[in-house]
Design a protein around this nucleic acid. Structure first.
Lengths: 204, 204
DNA sequence: CGTGAGTTTTACCAGTTGGTCAAATCAATG
DNA sequence: CATTGATTTGACCAACTGGTAAAACTCACG
């Protein structure tokens, strides 16, 4: 189905450079706000040369997106049904926060797409993400039923984790402007751990 | 300094229609992703006709933004130093959440701008918003010092409120897709109230 | 009902953008 | 070192975009 010919050394290098450049540009200007020329320049290629490696701007975007999503959902996937509930959740929050710090561009790329109505991603969300969320919501539910963590709405719990952690990447400019010299990521882990600990630790 | 001539009936109607249309289009496509023609069509005007009322695309955007920001910051401004701390914060959260429900386009317009690095808004953020945040952080701090609410990082507290509430507007597509029939705004107020109550109620 | 300001349209332009194509260049293999 | 396939370039195009100019139309008011 897909082409068989093994990629040459140059192909590998240039495709990687293009995707890296595309991540940089797409994440700060969105799909429509990005020009092929910008990506090409950032990747150190000419526009026709770039289009020799990818058939279109949209193709670059799609490849970037599908590649991203796997990594992106990984922390949620590894929420372990057999682990200690509170610890599992706290670890998930921590991992998500680390991703916001270490891969803010990926977060912003995703945010850009969703804020604008996810025109190129609704399918993925409705399928892959949705089924994963259903599965993990059920897990959270079972933990609540067993009294391991406080009862709340499991989906809203997930949303809150996403929004709180990704905020530091997506609204980075605002956060840093308002915090001045202080690095947001100094206090954030502690803040979020406290928040979820107080919220989820079972009361007696 | 500014022009004095009072706006005619037609001017009033058309300028309002343009701003309404611009909000709709800008909030779903961002500045660069929006064309003047789109706004004009949405407003029921021709492009040159629209440009008779506003000198440029940027001018429309700026007017929209500055108009929005006042309303946007209003809930934070009205955080009352003399009110009951916990209640004040819970009311603030509730108001912000209502704004996400009732004015999601405004929230997305703002989100679009910040995610992309706030190229047209950094000044406002560094000035108006920053000083307001300093003031209210100090207020939160004093409440914590007085033992009225649990001690946490006041700025991170504010960030968390913004991110949790605006998430329902900014990521609306995702939230609704994942929740299916259930209206997100049914359970959200309760979820957030519980969260902040548990987080902030002083321990003894 | 005429007149002038206010409003709208038609035609247009210059710059940008995504993408194509054929020619030129490069690299590896025999 | 010759040849062939991979890579790169320069020239180009059609569609789109923000914005302009001037003519045409509409409307309130005297």
């Amino acid at each position: 189905m897909t082409k068989a010919p093994s990629p040459t050394r140059i192909q590998k290098k240039n495709r990687a450079a293009i995707l890296e450049a595309a991540l940089e540009v797409f994440s700060t200007h969105g799909f429509r706000g990005t020009t092929v020329d910008q990506i090409a320049t950032e990747a150190g290629l000419s526009k026709p040369n770039l289009l020799y490696y990818f058939p279109s701007k949209e193709a670059i975007f799609n490849e970037l997106m599908s590649g991203l999503l796997d990594t992106w959902l990984d922390p949620l996937r590894s929420l372990d049904p057999d682990g200690d509930p509170l610890q599992e959740i706290l670890s998930y929050v921590e991992r998500k926060l680390q991703m916001s710090r270490d891969f803010p561009r990926e977060s912003r790329l995703y945010a850009n797409e969703i804020v604008q109505g996810a025109p190129r991603m609704l399918d993925t969300i409705s399928n892959d993400l949705k089924s994963l969320v259903e599965e993990k919501s059920a897990l959270l539910d079972s933990w609540m039923a067993a009294g391991k963590i406080n009862r709340t709405h499991p989906k809203h719990l997930l949303f809150s984790i996403w929004s709180l952690t990704q905020h530091y990447a997506d609204f980075d400019v605002q956060v840093r402007t308002l915090m001045g010299d202080e690095d947001p990521f100094d206090a954030a882990p502690d803040y979020l751990e406290t928040l979820y600990r107080r919220m989820l630790t079972p009361r007696n």
